[in-house]
Simulated scan of single mutants.
Amino acid sequence: YWILDPVDGTTNLMHDYQHSVVSLALCRQQEIVMGIVYDPFNDELFSAVKGEGSFLNGKPIHVSSAMKLSETIIGIGTAKRELAKENFARFLKVYENSQDVRRLGSAALELAYTACGRQGGYFEIYLNPWDYAAGMLLVQEAGGKVTDWNGNALDPAQGCQVIGTNGQVHEELLKLL
C-alpha cells in the first residue's frame, strides 16, 4: 500500500514558511521499500529504494560522519502541545549536548536532511506513518538508523515516537530522551 502525505508541513505552507514537502512511501508486507520526499521550494527530490541507497536529485547521499552529538546539529519536532513542558526539557538537554538544534516543521524534510548529512539526527514525540515512512527509508538507505525512543523498529502502520540519526549518535541521543 501507498503512504502519502501531500503536504507535510501544512502550517508552514499556510504561513509561506517554505519548508513543506510531498512525502510518498510504498509499504510491502509491513516494510517500507520505496520512499520519496520532494521539496518544491528548493527543487530537491530525495529518493530511496530498499537495498539501493538514498539519492538527492539522482546523486547518492549519506548520513553525517559525526561521532558525537557535540559534533552535529539535531532536528527537533514539537508535536503534542499538551507535552510542551516535557518536550522543551528534552530540547534543552539536546541543545546543551549538541552543536545546536533546528526545527523545520516538517518531519519528512527533517529525516531527508538527516539522510543527506545536513544534520546528525532528528526526533519527535509522536508521528503518524505518513509523516515518517518515506524519510525512514531515506535515512536507513543513507547509512543511518531509525527507531522508536526505546530503540525498537518502527511499524509503518502505527503512529509512534521517532528518532532518526546517522547511527553514530543514536545511543547518545536516546539516553537524553
Rank of each mutant, 00 (worst) to 15 (best):
Gly143Ala: 11
Asp5Gly: 05
Val101Lys: 00
Gly143Trp: 07
Gln161Ala: 13
Asp100Tyr: 07
Gln158Ile: 09
Gly159Arg: 06
Cys27Ala: 15
His15Leu: 15
Asp100Asn: 15
Thr78Glu: 01
Tyr113Val: 02
Tyr17Gln: 11
Lys85Glu: 08
Glu110Tyr: 01
Ser47Lys: 08
Ala153Met: 11
Ala153Pro: 02
Leu174Arg: 06
Tyr17Lys: 06
Lys50Gly: 01
Asp43Lys: 15
Phe123Trp: 12
Asn87Leu: 15
Ala89Leu: 15
Ile32Asn: 03
Ala157Glu: 10
Asn128Thr: 13
Leu92Met: 11
Thr78Gln: 09
Thr78Met: 11
Asp100Leu: 04
Gln18His: 13
Glu71Lys: 13
Cys27Tyr: 00
Glu171Thr: 14
Gln158Thr: 07
Ser65Met: 11
Pro40Met: 12
Ala25Pro: 05
Thr10Phe: 10
Ser47Glu: 13
Ala107Ile: 12
Leu26Glu: 13
Thr147His: 07
Leu177Phe: 02
Asn87Thr: 14
Asp100Arg: 05
Asn150Ala: 09
Gly120Glu: 08
Val63Glu: 07
Cys116Phe: 07
Asn42Ser: 13
Ile163Val: 14
Tyr113Asn: 09
Gly9Glu: 07
Ile163Tyr: 03
Gln30Pro: 01
Leu56Cys: 10
Gly77Met: 11
Ile163Glu: 00
Glu172Met: 03
Trp130Lys: 13
Asn57Cys: 09
Ala142Trp: 08
Lys93Phe: 03
Thr147Trp: 08
Asp39Phe: 13
Glu31Asn: 09
Ala89Ile: 12
Arg118Asp: 08
Glu141Ser: 03
Gly135Met: 09
Gly120Trp: 01
Ala133Gly: 07
Ile73Glu: 01
Leu69Val: 05
Pro6Lys: 05
Thr11Gln: 13
Gly58Lys: 15
His62Asp: 02
Gln29Ala: 15
Ala108Ile: 10
Gly121Leu: 06
Glu44Tyr: 12
Asn97Ile: 08
Lys175Ala: 12
Cys160Tyr: 04
Ala157Met: 12
Val162Pro: 06
Leu69Gly: 01
Gln18Met: 12
Gly105Glu: 03
Glu86Pro: 00
Glu71Asp: 09
Gly143Ser: 08
Ala79His: 12
Glu71Pro: 00
Val101Gln: 00
Gly75Arg: 02
Gly159Cys: 13
Ala79Asn: 13
Gln168Gly: 01
Lys175Leu: 11
Gly58Arg: 15
Pro40Leu: 12
Val33Ile: 15
Lys85Thr: 10
Val139Asp: 01
Cys116Trp: 05
Ala84Thr: 14
Leu109Val: 11
Arg90Pro: 00
Ala25His: 04
Ile32Leu: 09
Val146Asn: 02
Glu110Ala: 15
Ala133Met: 06
Glu141Asp: 01
Gly77Asn: 05
Tyr1Ala: 14
Ser64Thr: 09
Ser47Trp: 06
Asp148Thr: 10
Ser64Ala: 14
Leu26Lys: 12
Ala133Asn: 06
Asp39Met: 13
Ala115Arg: 04
Thr147Phe: 08
Asp16Phe: 13
His19Leu: 14
Val63Leu: 05
Thr114Asn: 06
Glu171Leu: 11
Met136Arg: 14
Ala107Phe: 02
Glu96His: 04
Val101Trp: 00
Ala115Cys: 06
Ser47Val: 11
Lys80Phe: 13
Tyr126Arg: 14
Asp43Met: 12
Leu154Trp: 02
Asn128Ile: 11
Lys80Ala: 02
Ala112Asn: 01
Gln29Trp: 04
Pro40Asn: 07
Gly159Met: 14
Asn42Ala: 14
Gly58Trp: 14
Glu171His: 10
Ser106Glu: 07
Val63Ala: 03
Asn152Pro: 00
Tyr38Asn: 00
